[in-house]
Amino acid sequence: MTSESLQRTGAPARRTIVAAAGAAGLAVALTACGSDDKSSDSSSSSSNTPADAGASGGDASSSPSSGSGGTALAKTSDIPEGGGKIFKDQGVVVTQPTAGTYKAFSSKCTHAGCAVSSIANGVIVCPCHNSEFSVADGSVKKGPATQALPAEEIIVSEDSITLA
Rank of each mutant, 00 (worst) to 15 (best):
P80K: 07
S131F: 02
V92W: 15
C109A: 07
G83T: 00
G100K: 05
S68T: 15
A104G: 10
P127M: 11
T76C: 13
G84P: 03
K108G: 01
I79G: 09
A120C: 10
K75C: 10
S68M: 12
P127V: 10
T71H: 12
D89M: 13
A136R: 05
F87E: 02
S77V: 12
I119C: 08
H111G: 07
V123G: 03
A104Q: 00
C128D: 09
V123F: 00
Q96C: 04
L73V: 00
G83E: 05
G100S: 14
S107I: 08
E81N: 14
N121R: 10
S77R: 14
S106T: 13
V92C: 01
S107D: 12
V135G: 08
S118H: 09
T76Y: 03
K75T: 13
A136N: 08
E81T: 15
D137E: 11
V116Q: 05
K141L: 00
K88E: 15
L73Q: 05
I124W: 01
S68K: 14
A74E: 12
V125G: 04
T76H: 06
T71G: 11
I119E: 09
S117K: 13
T98S: 14
N130C: 11
S134W: 02
A136H: 02
F133N: 04
I119M: 01
C109R: 03
F133E: 05
S118E: 11
L73C: 08
T101Q: 14
I86S: 02
S77P: 00
S139T: 15
P80N: 03
H129R: 08
N130A: 13
F105V: 03
V125A: 06
S139Q: 11
C114P: 09
H129P: 01
S131N: 03
G70F: 00
I79A: 09
D78L: 13
V135D: 01
K75S: 15
S131D: 04
S118C: 02
K85R: 15
A115F: 10
K108L: 12
T110Q: 00
G100T: 04
S134E: 04
S107T: 11
T71S: 14
D137F: 05
H111F: 05
Q96T: 08
S131G: 02
K88N: 12
L73A: 11
S107W: 03
A104T: 05
V125N: 06
I86P: 06
G113T: 07
A115D: 14
V135C: 03
G91E: 13
Q96R: 10
N130L: 15
A74G: 13
A112Q: 14
A120L: 05
